[in-house]
């Protein structure tokens, strides 16, 4: 049998809903594991990406750390897939885009009582937020998009099995949805 494909997954500015949908492929996971190995992923708890065949990313880009992770994925993955509404359009986190970041931080940490002792957290450990939330394809090249909030397990299954079989993935009627 040929070498198993390596897959890495991560969630950036997302809710892990797309990962839940990946888990929703249920017992087909066993079939999948015959064909692939998971690298960096919440499933394995591996912290950094080794060279992989496929990277799957949920969520948009809201802070500096997201950018670093995304770069790491792009450098290591031959094929990068944006999964779900947030990765493709920014989604719910991007609702803050019409607000000015300064006034957001001021409102949360300075104006409202009882948070962070009245100063904006500035520990170097914390990633700085970007002034806007961006979809993945505005930061690196993305090869494929799986829309949906979240995409159904069937859509993910179809997409991955097509890809693994070496075909151009195609989500037909009923599997593509935008909400």
């Amino acid at each position: 049998m040929s070498k198993k494909l390596r897959i890495a997954t991560t969630s950036l500015a997302g809710c892990f809903g797309c990962h839940m949908s990946i888990l929703d492929i249920d017992e087909r996971l066993f079939a999948l594991l015959e064909l692939v190995e998971f690298d960096r992923s919440p499933i394995t708890d591996i912290k950094h990406c080794a060279p992989c065949d496929i990277g799957i990313i949920e969520g948009g880009i809201c802070n500096a750390e997201n950018v670093h992770v995304l770069h790491e994925f792009r450098k290591n993955c031959k094929i990068l897939i944006a999964i779900g509404a947030c990765a493709i359009n920014g989604g719910l986190p991007a609702q803050r885009n019409h607000l000015d970041l300064s006034s957001c931080l001021t409102e949360v940490y300075l104006t409202e009582p009882g948070l962070a002792h009245g100063h904006i957290p500035n520990d170097p450990e914390l990633p700085l937020p970007l002034d806007k939330v961006h979809p993945l394809h505005e930061v690196v090249k993305i090869d494929y998009f799986i829309p949906g909030c979240p995409p159904s397990a069937d859509a993910i299954w179809k997409f991955l099995t097509d890809l693994i079989a070496g075909k151009t993935p195609e989500l037909g009627h009923g599997l593509i949805k935008y909400d």
């Binding site: 931080l105 904006i120 500035n122 170097p124 937020p129 970007l130 002034d131 806007k132 961006h134």
Partner: peptide, 25 residues
């Protein structure tokens, strides 16, 4: 491929608000 926007510039506001200028910022 090029990012659609200036990545470092997008952190300027947060740098200003937190007073940080370390490498991670």
């Amino acid at each position: 491929f090029e990012p659609a926007f200036d990545l470092d510039g997008a952190l300027a506001r947060a740098r200003q608000m937190t007073g940080r200028d370390d490498a991670g910022a």
